[in-house]
Amino acid sequence: MNRYLKLVHMEVDRFKYILAGLMSLTLICQFGGVIWWTKSAVSNRESGAWMNGGSMGYILNSSTSGNLSFTHVLFNTQFIFMIPILMSIGVIAIYVFLIWYRDWLGRNTFIYRLLTLPTARRHIYFAKLTAILIFIFGLVSFQLALLPVEKLIFNLIVPSDMRDPSNISNIIYANPALEMLIPWQFDSFLVYYVIGIIAVLVIFAAILIERSYGRLGILYAILYLGISVFLLLFPMAGLGLDNVNGYLYPNEIFAIELVMCVVVMTVSVWIGCRLISKKITV
């Protein structure tokens, strides 16, 4: 357990600069967007341009009183907000692969060292998995933590007589990217994040298959990916969920889907652990 934690620490430590970079990018883009847009909205109102039908952008979604709300700000800064979020998703997606392959590539194949540590091999697997989860949830939490700060900035820039209140769910809905990251309904949350985790597990298994089977490894890995995707999609897409006269009730289809998810998850983890313990080759 102790060594597992040390491994997790090491994996997080190796990525810390990129993580810090992503967080900084997010902070700069979002703070920058909020400040810039809010300031120009405020000066726009103060100069009276709004009253006289100024720039179109500010009119959309305004409240009838002409006041600004934070939701409003988020709606209008969608693009700049989304850039760092999409980049973060992209970087993490790539790192799901790189977290393994970086240990094989280059002159200093760290995988030799990892595999000869006096610790159960599955700890290496779980440490990498844990690290990815830490990165994902860390970034999401960071994003969540930024929102109240951004609201504070908004409050500082906009005089209170120009402000309208906004509630948290409207804030999140104002931006499609945020809506995806922080889904308001618990079941959506579950679906997005669980699917995400299953994807990571399946990819890990595929990577370890590729690394264990030499030249044919890449074929086996792709095959595994294909089968997993098929098993996961088939119940929802192929069993006639939208067919009113279909053979199975929707609840039954959901149940089958759930079973498929559990099966694919368990098999992926089992394959991953087993390969890294017994079959992997450097």
Binding site: R14, G106, R107, N108, T109, R113, T116, L117, P118, T119
Partner: peptide, 20 residues
């Protein structure tokens, strides 16, 4: 097995630690 890595040390033909 994992415990034996405390009994046998391996010096591969290249350095196997992260470059950073």
């Amino acid at each position: 097995d994992k415990n034996l890595y405390e009994q046998v040390a391996f010096v591969p033909d290249h350095l196997t630690m992260p470059p950073g």
